[in-house]
Amino acid sequence: MRKIRELVYSADINRFRLYSQVVAFGLLMYGGYLAIDLGANLPTFACAFVGDGRGGTCYLYPLQHQLNMPLAQFIGGRGVAFLTGLITFVLFFMLFNKAWCGFACPLGTIQDWTTKLRSRLGIRYSAYSERTFHGLIKIKYVLLVLLILLSLGMSNAVPGIGKLSEDFMTPYCMICPGRTVLPLFNGDIKQLVVDFSSKTKLTLTALGMAVTGTFFVGAFAKKRFFCLFCPMSALQYIFSKAGLLRLIKDGSKCTKCGNCSRVCDMGIREIADDVVSKNILQDDCMMCFKCVAACPEEKCLDVRFLGLPVFSSTEQGFFKRMEGKVKDEN
């Protein structure tokens, strides 16, 4: 048992993550062709605009559809359907917590591939200053609130404005780069358009295409550029305390060497600087566990599933991984 644990803790988690991402990408983007369907409440960007090929659907899509109903109906059957969807989403999410982002999200995977390309080309990455970072991370909550309010606004009249146009249908999807980028992998270019049918559609689709352009540059210049603005990440964080998978920090063992924060694709500083919190999961964390792999302190960072150890930082694992890394680089 100890041997196995030692082996796992010394494992190259990044490689494992790469495999997991490839499998998840295949499953979520092409699983449909093998008649795999994980349902419509997935806590990850299994984009609904990817046609038959997709193996599941991002929860934001049905959520926005379901919210498009008169408030009174939330008490009835459709309210039950809404609740069922939400509960399914939460259950799926609880299982892997934010690791959905690090290990499964197809849009995240694409960003990681872009990062790999940049690194190969020897072009340096950008990073936000601490202040900018803390300003930017609020955007995803704003997007989440907008997504909810706009969806509700189509079926519920706002005094003075009235009901919103149905052209606001799935407002977030319209500006999400997942909608424009992910279907490309199934050979579908239909989403790469500006829709002139109404002012709302025009604005939303033009915004969507602008976001797409920014997405590519952003993901190239900055690791996991888009994830900082992802409303799914915001929605997930609301429930992350209930996650079965946890990232635990033992602050007394931390030397604040900053290795964890340095390798963090999201640029989270608290992982290194916070020596008090036990549950160190931050709202932008994608649970890629690169930090755990980069931590040289015995059991300082600990990944637990239902309290059982899954992965942990160890001296031995750290040095083994670094040896491998330098060997790979040269």
Partner: peptide, 11 residues
């Protein structure tokens, strides 16, 4: 304290 880096480039 040992060093860990993310990308094997000087930057």
């Amino acid at each position: 304290d040992p060093i860990s880096f993310d990308e094997g480039n000087l930057y």
